[in-house]
Simulated assay, not measured.
Amino acid sequence: MGGSARGGQDLIEDFLAMLSAERGAAANTIAAYRRDLRGAEDIVGNLAAAGADDLKQLAAAWRDLAPATVARKSSALRQFYGYLLDEGTISADPGPHLPRPATRRPLPRILDHAQVSALFEQAENEAKGDLPAPLRTLVMLELLYGSGLRATELVSLPLSAVPRDAPFLTVTGKGGQARMVPVSGRAVEVLSRWIPVRQTGSAYLFPSGRHHLTRVRLFQLLKELATRAGIPAAQISPHVLRHAFATHLLEGGADLRVLQTLLGHADIATTQIYTHVDSARLVALVNERHPLADRPLSD
């Protein structure tokens, strides 16, 4: 593979400057890329001149690292080589020779039905009056667990997304993709109590000053509620409630494709992670519903 007249360190800094200028990468991201790239260069020498045999050294050097760490380091190098290829610094991409660890997607944490009930009981008791703060917490809880919204989707909901006639929210998810999300009758009822007492003059359903409630504040409110409900604060987050929404729907017999649509997943492989938590129900379903379930074994 052809090398470069410029040193490897200079090329790395050029690449990092591009990340900052063209992609708006944060300072912490730039620092992480620099560590990974310079660490790889310490092992194989000039990265721009490294060939397949050189890159094989990385697999041995990274052998004791966690798969996720190896994946991150390889990703940094692939992007670096893609940049060099675009710039004409190298004539062939050595990226395919980089280590590709098999990473396992972490299993989602969930709340069981009893914990969800305790959380709602606490929130409902606190929201019996018309005080805005507890009503807001109850509405957010209803939409996180009842509709499976992401934290960012929830806090940034515009007031115009609230259903008038049809029981649906229009949600803008990742990548700017809009989807329709059903809203339970319970949530509609609490929304009708929340809207008259919320801060007026804001375009957001959950206003905070001139903007909307932050994700950080949402996390804090949920953890405080969990503590009052006797649930360890470490066990709860907006994403845990979204996981519970998905898992409990599967337990109730929801179709995986329907769940994919409700969660706004672009790839059903992302949705399939929820199937592991329902294995006991699936075994029971086969034993109870399969045509051979009631047929006795012959002697």
Results as ranks from 00 to 15, higher is better:
Gly176His: 11
Gly176Asp: 12
Gly176Ser: 08
Gly176Ile: 06
Gln177Ser: 12
Gln177Asn: 15
Ala178Thr: 14
Ala178Lys: 15
Arg179Pro: 13
Arg179Glu: 11
Arg179Gln: 12
Arg179Asn: 11
Arg179Ser: 10
Met180Phe: 12
Val181Gly: 10
Val181Pro: 12
Pro182Ala: 06
Pro182Lys: 06
Pro182His: 09
Val183Gly: 01
Val183Ile: 12
Ser184Trp: 07
Ser184Lys: 04
Ser184Met: 04
Gly185Phe: 08
Gly185Cys: 04
Gly185Lys: 14
Arg186Phe: 12
Arg186Trp: 04
Arg186Lys: 14
Arg186Ser: 13
Arg186Cys: 00
Arg186Tyr: 09
Ala187His: 09
Val188Tyr: 05
Val188Trp: 10
Val188His: 12
Val188Cys: 14
Val188Ile: 15
Val188Thr: 13
Glu189Asn: 11
Glu189Trp: 06
Val190Ser: 05
Leu191Gln: 08
Leu191Asp: 05
Leu191Arg: 01
Ser192Ala: 15
Ser192Trp: 02
Ser192Pro: 00
Ser192Asp: 14
Arg193Ser: 03
Arg193Tyr: 09
Trp194Lys: 03
Trp194Val: 00
Ile195Thr: 14
Ile195Val: 15
Ile195His: 05
Pro196Asp: 11
Pro196Ala: 06
Pro196Asn: 11
Val197Asp: 12
Val197Phe: 10
Val197Met: 06
Val197Asn: 13
Arg198Ser: 10
Arg198Trp: 04
Arg198Glu: 05
Arg198Val: 02
Gln199Pro: 01
Gln199Val: 07
Gln199His: 05
Thr200Ala: 15
Thr200Cys: 00
Gly201Arg: 04
Gly201Thr: 07
Ser202Asn: 02
Ala203Thr: 11
Ala203Phe: 00
Ala203Asp: 13
Ala203Leu: 09
Tyr204Lys: 00
Tyr204Cys: 02
Tyr204Pro: 02
Tyr204Thr: 00
Leu205Ile: 09
Leu205Asp: 04
Leu205His: 04
Leu205Tyr: 08
Leu205Pro: 05
Leu205Lys: 06
Phe206Ala: 01
Phe206Ser: 04
Phe206Met: 02
Pro207His: 07
Pro207Lys: 01
Ser208Lys: 04
Ser208Val: 00
Ser208Phe: 00
Gly209Ile: 06
Gly209Glu: 06
Gly209Ser: 03
Arg210Asp: 14
Arg210Cys: 00
Arg210Val: 09
Arg210Leu: 09
His211Trp: 10
His211Val: 05
His211Ala: 13
His211Tyr: 11
His212Val: 03
His212Met: 06
His212Tyr: 13
His212Glu: 04
Leu213Cys: 01
Leu213Gln: 02
Leu213Arg: 01
Leu213Ser: 03
Leu213Pro: 01
Thr214Met: 05
Thr214Tyr: 02
Arg215Thr: 13
Arg215Val: 13
Val216Pro: 01
Val216His: 14
Val216Trp: 04
Val216Arg: 13
Arg217Gly: 04
Arg217His: 11
Arg217Ala: 13
Leu218Thr: 09
Leu218Ala: 10
Leu218Ile: 11
Leu218Cys: 08
Phe219His: 14
Phe219Lys: 01
Gln220Lys: 13
Gln220Cys: 07
Gln220Thr: 14
Gln220Trp: 12
Leu221Cys: 11
Leu222Cys: 05
Glu224Pro: 01
Glu224Gln: 14
Leu225Met: 10
Ala226Gln: 06
Ala226Asn: 09
Ala226Met: 02
Thr227Ser: 15
Thr227Glu: 15
Thr227Cys: 02
Thr227Asp: 13
Arg228Met: 02
Arg228Val: 03
Ala229Glu: 11
Ala229His: 01
Ala229Arg: 07
Gly230Met: 06
Gly230Asp: 08
Gly230Arg: 05
